[in-house]
Design a protein around this nucleic acid. Structure first.
Lengths: 164, 164
DNA sequence: TTAATTAGCTTGCATTATGCAAGTCAATTT
DNA sequence: AAATTGACTTGCATAATGCAAGCTAATTAA
């Protein structure tokens, strides 16, 4: 039995999923966006087993999504912080959140609300939009093979044409 | 050993991850957005074990993300199609794709490109934006507890304030 | 009109990964 | 000096995964 790796699927989504395509990993990242930084904080808040947490944090630091740095005030302690690469995951985290709110809402309303710090105005839903800013559905968009597209990409795109 | 369920974490992201927080599941969905519909097509394209595929498709249909319907022309065959709930995952799929392209790009350029069907113009990157359409980073956004927020949400939001 | 082939699965088994509890170890606190 | 804390490891039972093979009804080929 081989370990599954999505890395050899030559598709950007597969690459992403190889790094963060796992429930615990994404919950850790969610907490990191809430400025959580310490091992025991993640453990307590998520109820994740410590060995699993350790593995996930290691993988996230290895892939440059989190950075592990020693704390100045306590030499036992380490901080896990989002790198630029990690911060760049923000749209993914927000879209996961918004879909969950849309389809698994609480009767009283949203569990959390996002506001722009500068103005206090609510953040509109993140959508795929055209250049004019109008929202598009999946069926308003066509996928074409790009210059870096290999066999896997070609297969999928071809596939789409079959039925389009 | 109990099965892990994220459902009891009262957070929209955890709810989402309970349904689609898994690598194979997201790859199946990616393919579904490319209009892939049949068991053997998923199997062949992804190289996923058939029992795993079967489980994932069952879960996705149970949660109303895919719909399993008999085919008219062949009574052995079934089609798995995205429901409205499934189509609504589009921003998640696109953000996963775009992050992968940004951080795991091919030397020649993007593997795929998205264009608006109506105009042929490229789709701009999906970002979190304010009401004026200007992109925001995670640190430009503040999270406040909403009316449906319970203990879990409160803990996380409080947490954020600690360091903010 | 019998014989392949196909679509969509199940089943069995070996191997990994996960969840849980307990333990380690150095650095703080009490 | 003793207790506690932060960040982990280790061991073990259980669950999930990967792989191959088989199964069944429907369709196509000979």
């Amino acid at each position: 039995m081989q370990k599954k790796t999505f890395s050899d699927i030559d598709c950007a989504i597969a690459q992403t999923l190889e790094q963060i395509g796992d429930g615990w990993t994404l919950l850790i990242l969610r907490n990191a966006f809430h400025r959580m930084r310490h091992f025991d904080q993640f453990q307590e808040n998520l109820g994740i087993p410590t060995n699993t947490l350790s593995n996930r944090l290691k993988k996230l630091t290895d892939s440059g999504i989190l950075e592990r740095r020693a704390c100045a005030h306590d030499r036992r302690a380490y901080e896990y912080r989002l790198t630029d690469k990690g911060l760049d995951l923000y749209p993914i985290i927000v879209t996961l959140f918004q879909w969950g709110e849309r389809w698994y809402s609480r009767p009283n309303g949203p569990r959390m609300e996002l506001k722009e710090k500068a103005t206090g105005l609510p953040i509109p839903e993140v959508k795929v939009r055209n250049q004019d800013g109008n929202p598009l559905s999946a069926r308003d968009v066509q996928v074409i093979i790009g210059p870096g597209g290999g066999e896997d990409a070609t297969n999928l795109v071809k596939f789409q044409k079959k039925t389009a």
